[in-house]
């Protein structure tokens, strides 16, 4: 490679054939470039007589933002084929940080388009990217790479896992767009749970997402999320879980209402297994002295006369459809 100083304006940034990273120049990099310029050369090569960027997208972005006109570069010979150039771009980054799933998908697509043998991609590259070395995984990654870049950025930022991506790709394209609008600003776990629950509900009912979102319990939180109110995420998740889990959520509601109706002193607390696998109550008492303990126990014993306890145990041991 040949070291040279290049004019930023000469770079053909429209040609993104070697671009697969999604991190943007952060404030620290911008600050650094503003202070001392770009020290580490970017890597370029020539295509159609113009230099194109191989590696160093964040540095170029920072240089442009800082108003630099020139920057140092290492130029690869023009006759180096795209696959060889991209291998360099890939491994230059591979040694420095982990890639998000979105970046992995973009890189794999480049390898595929640059005609690296699919068997080699599966057996050599997928393990390097901590993905299972199977044809199915390559197919999934290629499908992911075709998503709109703004969606890939969401997947990148929230560090999605393949299982969530697979669910997302199970929705028709128009519904994916709608889903992204709903979940865009949520945390990764919230995004995953919303997608999982909508996916299951959709398969269960055969309704489209739009139809599902019209249901009374879902329409409110969905509209709020579409307006950017992320606080509505918890409400949406509760509603989705209730829709997917009517038996358990119905029983939980009734149990909690019985517990409340017992009106026990604050120092006596009742708990139970929310999955109802164990049909028992857990009781805890808070006492700082023998006297307090006696009082708590006495009030508990007195409350046992209340028929609500029987109802509570019946609910815990409930069996039925």
């Amino acid at each position: 490679m040949v070291y040279k100083i290049i004019e930023l304006s000469d770079l053909n940034l429209e040609d993104r054939r070697f671009h697969f990273t999604l991190n943007q120049a952060d404030r620290r990099l911008l600050h650094s470039v503003k202070e001392i310029g770009v020290v580490q050369p970017v890597i370029i090569t020539c295509r159609q007589n113009r230099p194109v960027l191989v590696d160093g997208w964040r540095r170029v972005e920072a240089a442009r933002a800082s108003g630099l006109e020139e920057l140092p570069a290492l130029e690869m010979a023009e006759n180096t084929d795209d696959l060889a150039v991209f291998l360099l771009a890939f491994f230059e980054n591979y040694g420095q940080r982990s890639f998000s799933l979105a970046e992995k998908s973009m890189a794999l697509r480049k390898f595929y388009e640059f005609r690296l043998n699919p068997v080699e991609i599966i057996e050599r590259l997928l393990p390097l990217l901590e993905l299972s070395p199977e044809r199915r995984m390559l197919d999934l990654m290629l499908e992911l790479s075709f998503l709109d870049e703004r969606f890939l950025e969401i997947i990148h930022r929230r560090d999605w896992k393949p299982v969530t991506v697979e669910l997302l790709l199970g929705f028709p394209p128009a519904e994916r767009t709608w889903l992204f609008l709903v979940i865009e600003k949520l945390t990764h776990n919230q995004q995953r749970e919303v997608i999982e629950n909508f996916y299951s509900l959709r398969r269960k009912t055969g309704k489209s997402l739009e139809e599902l979102a019209e249901a009374d319990e879902l329409s409110g939180p969905v509209s709020r999320l579409l307006r950017g109110e992320i606080a509505a995420a918890d409400r949406l998740l509760v509603a989705l879980k209730e829709a997917n889990s009517p038996l358990l959520s119905g029983l939980q509601r009734k149990i909690e209402s019985e517990v409340k109706a017992l009106n026990l002193p604050e120092k006596i607390r009742l708990n139970y297994d929310r999955t109802l696998e164990k049909p028992t109550l857990h009781l805890s008492l808070e006492a700082g002295s023998v006297k307090e303990l006696k009082e708590a126990l006495q009030s508990l014993v007195m409350s046992l006369e209340n028929q609500k306890w029987n109802r509570l145990f019946r609910l815990l041991g409930y069996e039925g459809e």
């Binding site: 299951s200 997917n244 038996l247 999955t275």
Partner: peptide
């Protein structure tokens, strides 16, 4: 197949199952 869309819980062994009240039933 729709059998995986039934109401399921994760039990202590990590597996998905029908909720205990339904299994018992």
């Amino acid at each position: 197949s729709r059998i995986f869309e039934h109401e399921l819980t994760r039990s202590s062994d990590g597996k998905y199952r029908y909720p205990r009240p339904l299994r018992q039933w």
